[in-house]
């Protein structure tokens, strides 16, 4: 299924987003290359979730542009990405049917979709619960199912918006392991978090967002060793509330 042409790099220029009079993102520009996970961090209200939704195409920018690497119209860009939400949205169906749903939407036959869905479930360790009603799963299992569902689409880019915000430490660890596995397989991870520990564990690159502006984009090691801006230093010291 994976098309030869990559949709990366992702080039973002002068991105602005306003909701009414409130400016949520202001003049954000960066480039995302293929490679290790990019973690978007920053205090609450920095605009992290909105940024992800803009990149994924769920919101339309007020100004600026989002340019995928693939030549326009050549590669179905939307089909090459997937997104995970803070609260997993599960259909009122079985675990397997949930994982197969987007594959069927994408035009796969029933059998093929089921087979790929089962692979996804195996990846997150839910293959034993395939026939269970999805909405009877625990919170951690639900988020893992959402991960399996996204992974089954074999996206080139996977957006994750605070996927562990509502999970306990064990479930958080399980999700992080799956994300790391996907990253190691070559899926580009773009993830927001307010959990610095999580960012340190997963990030290859950090984008630091503050009050709607992108203040830093740096390799994770460099960022955590010595952030360039005063805001980032304050954030790392825990002085900026989130």
């Amino acid at each position: 299924m994976r098309l030869p042409d990559s949709i990366l790099p992702l080039l973002v220029e002068g991105l602005c987003y306003r909701a009414g009079a409130v400016e949520i993102l202001r003049d954000v520009g960066f480039t995302l290359e293929a490679g290790g996970p990019s973690l978007v961090i920053g205090p609450n209200g920095a605009g992290k979730s909105v940024l992800l939704r803009l990149l994924h195409g769920l919101l339309a920018p007020s100004a600026g542009r989002i340019h995928w690497g693939a030549p326009e119209g050549n590669v179905p860009v939307a089909r090459r990405q997937a997104m995970l939400f803070q609260r997993p949205v599960l259909l009122r169906r079985s675990v397997l049917a949930n994982a197969a749903y987007p594959l069927r939407l994408a035009g796969l036959g029933r059998a093929e979709a089921a087979a790929r869905a089962r692979e996804g479930l195996a990846l997150v360790g839910l293959e034993g619960l395939a026939e269970r009603p999805a909405r009877r799963l625990s919170g951690g299992e639900q988020q893992r199912l959402a991960l399996a569902r996204a992974a089954a689409l074999q996206p080139e880019v996977l957006f994750l918006d605070e996927p562990c915000a509502n999970l306990d430490p064990a479930a958080t660890r399980a999700v992080e392991e799956i994300v790391a596995t996907l990253a190691a397989r070559g899926t580009k991870i773009v993830m927001t978090t307010h959990d610095l520990g999580q960012a340190r564990r997963l990030a290859a690159e950090v984008l630091f967002l503050h009050q709607g502006r992108l203040l830093e984009q740096a390799p994770a090691e460099a960022f955590f060793a010595g952030p360039a801006t005063a805001e980032a230093r304050a954030f790392l010291r825990g002085e900026l509330l989130w």
């Binding site: 994924h56 769920l58 939307a78 939400f85 949205v89 259909l91 749903y101 987007p102 939407l105 994408a106």
Partner: peptide, 12 residues
């Protein structure tokens, strides 16, 4: 309301 964003993400 619950499904809209997720379904749009799936391209529906």
């Amino acid at each position: 309301e619950e499904y809209a964003e997720q379904l749009r993400s799936f391209g529906a």
